[in-house]
Design a protein around this nucleic acid. Sequence first.
DNA 1: CAACTTCTGTGCGATACCGCACACAAGATT
DNA 2: AATCTTGTGTGCGGTATCGCACAGAAGTTG
Lengths: 258, 258
Amino acid sequence: MSTKPKPHPQQNHLLAALAPDVQARLFPHLELVPLPLRSLMYESGRTMRHVYFPTDAIVSLQYIMENGASTAILVVGNEGLLGISLFMGGQGTPSRSIVQSAGHAYRLPRPKVKEEFNRHGQLLLLMLRYTQALITQVAQTAVCNRHHSIDQQLCRWLLLSMDRLSHNQLTMTQEFIGNMLGVRREGVTQAALKLQQQGVISYSRGLIKVLDRDKLEALSCECYGVVKKETEILLPYLPQRQVIKDVAAIPVVTLPTL
Amino acid sequence: MSTKPKPHPQQNHLLAALAPDVQARLFPHLELVPLPLRSLMYESGRTMRHVYFPTDAIVSLQYIMENGASTAILVVGNEGLLGISLFMGGQGTPSRSIVQSAGHAYRLPRPKVKEEFNRHGQLLLLMLRYTQALITQVAQTAVCNRHHSIDQQLCRWLLLSMDRLSHNQLTMTQEFIGNMLGVRREGVTQAALKLQQQGVISYSRGLIKVLDRDKLEALSCECYGVVKKETEILLPYLPQRQVIKDVAAIPVVTLPTL
DNA sequence: CAACTTCTGTGCGATACCGCACACAAGATT
DNA sequence: AATCTTGTGTGCGGTATCGCACAGAAGTTG
């Protein structure tokens, strides 16, 4: 086992934006959870027991149809959280959450979330704001699914993923992207080929490198920009505070295999 | 002017579900607003000043693309409310709200909503639960747009509208439905023809009558059922209470022309 | 009644995407 | 090296939907 440095809770923008006293209250109850590539964090019908705040992982939320077809409706990274039903009032959602880029998340158990909800403090306000941004993303996905080509949607998808990473490499096959966009793998192949020929990306066997981000944005549909702009209005980036010193004291948890 | 009986606040399920003391506190601050067919209740970029609780009107929320194409992502009737951004934390949303079936709504001004939010009472809990149901509807719309035929989506649309009416007649042209579904008018014509030939609906010049609701459900995609089921879990129907006696005392407001 | 507007029906070629089948290429396993 | 698995490229016919053009039908207005 190597001793890689633990990710810090402040890598998650929502946690980072909290006032020092709120951080001091909450952080002792956080648990660090490694999120391996392609692991399932949630499956329809189950009950979520934690809210997850990703630090360096990306999670996709997808709906599965009766015939097995699927579509991703949302991408969550360190700008957000997973498990809104815990404070919105439901037990779960008819969706599935899959780790799209390996990393970690800090999680807060349900009772603590409830406690914080009742306290009616800063965390609740942030969670609700994030939820509103989330709705925008889902809605724009609906519009995009209706009106835009696979080419455009692939660009949007790559950008959504890029924004939540600190580097420019994505680990996902065209088959996987097809599942996320709800289109055929061959359709993704065609679109990816065009992008590669234009020098926007390069890829091989599940490893995609983004070479020209500006061009990618230019080739994407407006949906990416609309959501980004709206999110920035709702969740303006707040300077990270440094409060916790002893990250090492936070326990590490292993997700049960699903 | 005729003296039709005013709709009662309790016709809105969320208001009806409130405890008597909450109703007593809130209802004096409600205003009745007539919602004429096709009027615009909200347009992207504006600031919403009220939360609207429809009693007998239906409102559609749509996103407009740069090229003018549009798609409805949500239908709101007496089961819900309009203006979630007022308590979720934003100023507005990049969407447009149009009255799809004439009727009325009671509205609560922003300061009162805020007050109620801070009180952290039953109304907030209900609004959040409704918001979660709303997310499910938007997400399912995204999936539906990706995977289902115009035929199926027309059925879903008719059912969504039917559920929010007390009768079986819809006043909307095929052109209008096309705008809502984000498809061509001709596509709607084809789908509607099939339904009429099967005796499921009959229609003429903007007036649609649903003749066989069961068949409509059978012909619809699963999306309708998924959302309905999820909504029923989140917002089980609560018996209506009768508290307010003097409905006539509630002021009637006219929406500014947009 | 005539003229006009609105709504609905229909035809036709173009296009995007699908489903399927298969070939090939890059790693992984033995 | 031989084999196997996984990921990617390609071709082909089928289908849903589009964009456009136009015709007819049902109300509306003058």
